[in-house]
């Protein structure tokens, strides 16, 4: 077991983990932050996307110890005092949510984009979420939601 210290959704967290553990397993099994999903466990579907120091990563392939002394943001850390993030608001309003399993990963991938590039064009949005699969929505309303959030200055 080894210590892992990270700033998770703005709070300092310290725990002892098996060094072979991936970040997603720490989030889900140890901390029960189950908003981060596992769709394939091999970096193909993007459902487990979280931000590490602002960069979108597949947390199923990201060794938890690589997050040591870094900032990790998950879907649970997006709404501030129950006020939804503009991306979350836009996903609801535009109708970009169907089954909702890919939604957290999509929103996190989109957040990484908007933090870096507040007014992306359609191609940039598509590229940013191209590693995240969705089987329900056909992506059209997801792209529209990211665009809507960007127009509202969502970061």
């Amino acid at each position: 077991m080894q210590p892992l210290v990270m700033k998770l959704n703005g709070q300092d967290v310290t725990l002892q983990i098996d060094p072979s553990t991936m970040l997603v397993d720490v989030l889900r099994d140890e901390l029960h932050l189950t908003g981060t999903k596992v769709g394939c466990n091999e970096g193909e579907c993007g459902a487990c996307t979280v931000l590490v120091d602002g960069l979108a990563v597949d947390s199923c392939l990201f060794p938890a110890l690589k997050a040591d002394h870094r900032e990790v943001t998950t879907i649970e850390g997006l709404a501030f005092d129950d006020e939804l993030h503009p991306l979350q608001q836009a996903f609801i309003e535009v109708g970009a949510v169907q089954c909702g399993f890919c939604t957290p990963g999509m929103i996190m991938a989109a957040k990484a984009l908007l933090d870096e590039n507040p007014s992306p064009d359609e191609d940039e949005i598509k590229l940013a979420i191209s590693g995240t699969l969705c089987r329900c929505t056909g992506y059209t309303k997801i792209v529209a939601a990211v665009r809507a959030a960007a127009l509202k200055g969502g970061k």
Partner: peptide, 23 residues
Amino acid sequence: KRIARVDSPDKVTGKSIFPADLY
């Protein structure tokens, strides 16, 4: 009417519980 889905607030915040999320 274009009513927003009643389940979407939980789905965009990660609160929706899928079966693997149960402990």
